[in-house]
Computed example of a mutant assay.
Amino acid sequence: MPIPQIQAAEADGLTKEEAMRAAFEELGVPPDAWEGDSPDDIRRVATAALELDPSEVTIRVLSEGTKGLLGLGGKSARVRVSLQEAPDTSPADILRDIIDLMGIDAEVETEVREDELYLNIDTDDVAILIGRHGTTLDAIQYLVNSAVSKASDVRQRIVVNAAEYREKREDMLVEMAHQAARRARATGREVPLEPMSPRDRRIVHMTLRDDEDVRTFSRDEGRFRAVVVAPSDS
């Protein structure tokens, strides 16, 4: 991810509040924007004017200042204000960073499908990105979803796709489910399928949920968890 750009300014004033206002003005806050005199008022107005979250502003009082005796020998207050721009946490940019770390040249396009955000990868290194049965693609998808959930309050399922792998995989799983159902009906026995990801298992369950002749359930744990298709009366 890009390194945040940090801007900072130091300023003097008769009081720390004056120094704060002066430092913020150096960073772009209009002089006529101020409302209230407390440090909290100054921070609130400044962050609103700069369109920043308060967490992106650091105020450090370098010197409180002194008034001196009879107006003589006083020392100015000095304040340093640092602004840190929030890093770009868009799902597409997070995915691009992961792909770059893998040393793969690729383009990322976004597409909204119902309540899911699809990130479609266009690359010549499709096989490397997908991995066996999509394990690499699933791992990348997990990393993107985790990074986005930590950086944002927005909860939207993100699907990472490459060369329409998700669609092709779903078609294959649907056919596999129907074949297992036919075999279970013909033999009267359970038909265990290969271990699958939660997403793939859900596709199998949903495919056969309305088939009255068979039932589906999952067996084993972790990476060995798999769907079993069995006759309804077994």
Rank of each mutant, 00 (worst) to 15 (best):
M1H: 12
P4M: 03
I6A: 00
Q7C: 04
Q7I: 03
Q7S: 10
D12P: 12
D12M: 13
G13I: 09
E17C: 03
M20Q: 08
A22F: 06
E25H: 10
E26H: 10
D32C: 05
A33G: 02
E35G: 01
G36E: 10
I42Y: 10
I42A: 05
A48Q: 15
E51K: 09
E51R: 13
T58K: 15
L62D: 07
E64K: 10
T66D: 00
T66A: 06
K67P: 05
L70W: 08
G73W: 08
K75I: 12
S76E: 13
S82D: 11
D88M: 05
T89M: 11
S90E: 12
D93E: 15
I94S: 06
L101Y: 06
G103Y: 06
D105T: 13
A106I: 02
E107W: 00
V108Q: 05
T110K: 13
E111N: 11
E114M: 04
D115G: 00
L117P: 13
Y118K: 10
T123K: 02
H133K: 14
H133G: 00
G134Y: 02
G134S: 01
G134R: 05
I140L: 15
Q141F: 14
V144I: 07
S146C: 01
A151S: 14
A151D: 09
A151L: 07
D153P: 02
V154F: 08
V159Q: 01
N161Y: 05
Y165P: 00
E167H: 10
E167M: 12
E170C: 08
M176K: 14
H178F: 07
R182C: 04
R185G: 06
V191Q: 15
L193F: 01
E194H: 08
R201Y: 04
R202N: 07
R202M: 05
T207K: 06
L208A: 00
D210H: 08
D210F: 00
D211S: 01
E212R: 14
R215D: 11
T216L: 04
S218F: 06
S218K: 03
G222W: 06
R223G: 03
A226K: 14
V228T: 03
V228M: 04
P231K: 01
S232T: 07
D233G: 04
S234Y: 03
